[in-house]
Design a protein around this nucleic acid. Structure first.
Length: 411
RNA sequence: CGGGGCGUAGUAUAGUGGUAGUAUACACGUUUCGGGUGCGUGAGGUCCGAGUUCGAUUCUCGGCGCCCCGACCA
């Protein structure tokens, strides 16, 4: 991609009404656009990063036998009345609207109910189980107060996977596989070292659920971390019994502020019973399906990375999710030799399948460098009259600032 | 949902009851060419409505919107 053609450009200052670091940086760098409070559009750079995060999640969900679908945002109220989640007194962040014929519909804030209804058409026997189904879906939550940039929006993308098993035992096995997949996801997107499997409230069907909490001051949760075991306990459930369960002592725990980037939850038979998702077991008797739900917000992941992988100059993307692999910067000279050489290198890298953002703009060196720092592509290749003199390319690592000079012919 | 603050060009900011200023971004010219180069020219603005007033961007009220603190967050 030639930067001269790129839709979006950087700006020096963030809008004054944007306080969170993630939104400030992402807006300045041209990744996102704010539509209204808590509602953001993703522009080319932001969408590239988002799609890479989605790609990683998709691979890991497929690796645990997840099958991708795509459901609807519009929701039939009767499905939610069956589980007592339609009433505004019970769920206070619905977006509801009406069809022309007057019937009420909602914009989904999660998808347990509609998916359970779908599954009823395809699960009748123990032979039809287990199943795991997931989607990337826009969720709508009418938050009282949107804040923290893209980390807590009113409309946001969510990967939600739901598992369907015959019994508790097979469910637990699957749940554990999902947990391991989640750990791999956060490792791969570059949040592994700050992300803790966190014990949290389990609801009526299991003692605990697990949250994936990433340490950052931008978060809203408080957790107690056990560094060496790499686990944590959400403040909401911290008590003597929990400590005993986990074999931990309060003195080994450190209080941290964190953001919930993912969570996995055993649902038991709450939804299958309420909505009638039963199967016939080996003895010919009907039994409710045992379910679990597993969520990750790709946008929240992106916002979290923007928060903790950035410095005063801008963003610093981990390689796996950077919008481009290489930022090629040409510092043009008068006779056009640098441009010719940079054009050639750009073509060469493209042919190798490397994703390159090529700054071919007629701009000063300082401007290009500043923009490059702000956008945060991991590696910067610089070509100038200076490097041309000895047929080299200067390579600078965005994260470490380390510079090396390599022969152009070796690339 | 309780409390507080704020709406002036694309962005960031001054200022005023009487022709709205600066920076940046933008266009043109020129200059410069390894860390947002300098100069010149140009275009671009008072959230909406009502009230007070000879006159409102300024004061009052309402609306809309944004932000912060708290509560909430399945």
């Amino acid at each position: 991609m030639k930067q001269s053609q790129l839709f979006t450009k950087t700006r020096r200052e963030a809008p004054k009404d944007e306080v969170s670091k993630n939104a400030q940086l992402l807006i300045r760098a041209g990744f996102i656009h704010k539509e209204m409070a808590g509602v953001y559009s993703y522009l080319p750079l932001g969408l590239r990063t988002m799609n890479k995060i989605i790609g990683i999640i998709r691979e890991e969900m497929n690796s645990i036998d997840g099958q991708e679908i795509h459901m609807t945002a519009l929701q039939d109220k009767k499905n939610w009345e069956a589980t007592n989640r339609w009433d505004d007194e019970v769920v206070d962040n619905w977006f509801k609207t009406k069809l022309k014929n007057g019937s009420e519909v909602g914009l989904g804030f999660t998808h347990e109910e509609p998916l359970t209804i779908v599954m009823k058409d395809y699960i009748q026997s123990f032979r039809d189980l287990p199943k795991a189904v997931y989607q990337f879906q826009t969720k709508f939550r009418n938050e009282e107060r949107a804040k923290s940039g893209i980390m807590r929006g009113r409309e946001f993308l969510m990967k939600d996977l739901y598992s369907f098993n015959t019994d508790e035992e097979s469910h637990i096995k699957y749940y554990e596989r999902a947990k391991q997949a989640y750990i791999r996801i956060f490792d791969r997107v570059g949040l592994g070292s700050e992300t803790y499997v966190t014990f949290a409230s389990g609801g009526s069907f299991s003692k605990y659920s697990h949250e994936f909490q990433t340490i950052t001051s931008a978060g809203e949760d408080t957790i107690y971390v056990h560094e060496s075991k790499k686990i944590a306990i959400n403040k909401e459930v911290l008590n003597d019994e929990v400590l005993k369960d986990l074999g931990l002592s309060k003195s080994d725990l450190v209080e941290k502020t964190s953001v919930e980037v993912g969570n996995i939850f055993s649902l038991g038979t709450r939804f299958s019973t309420a909505l009638g998702l039963n199967f016939t077991d080996t003895e010919g008797k009907p039994r409710p399906v045992v379910m679990g739900s597993y969520g990750i917000g790709p946008g929240r992941v992106m916002g979290t990375i923007a928060e903790i992988r950035s410095d005063e100059k801008g963003l610093i993307w981990p390689e796996a999710i950077a919008p481009f692999d290489i930022h090629l910067i040409a510092l043009f000279d008068k006779d056009g030799a640098v441009k010719k050489s940079a054009d050639e290198l750009y073509e060469k890298l493209n042919k190798q399948g490397i994703e390159v953002l090529y700054d071919d703009r007629d701009a000063t060196a300082g401007e290009k460098f500043s923009d490059s720092d702000l956008i945060g592509i991991p590696r910067r290749y610089v070509i100038s009259a200076k490097t041309l003199a000895d047929n080299s390319v200067e390579i600078k690592d965005r994260a470490t600032g380390k510079v090396e000079i390599v022969k152009a012919s070796s690339l």
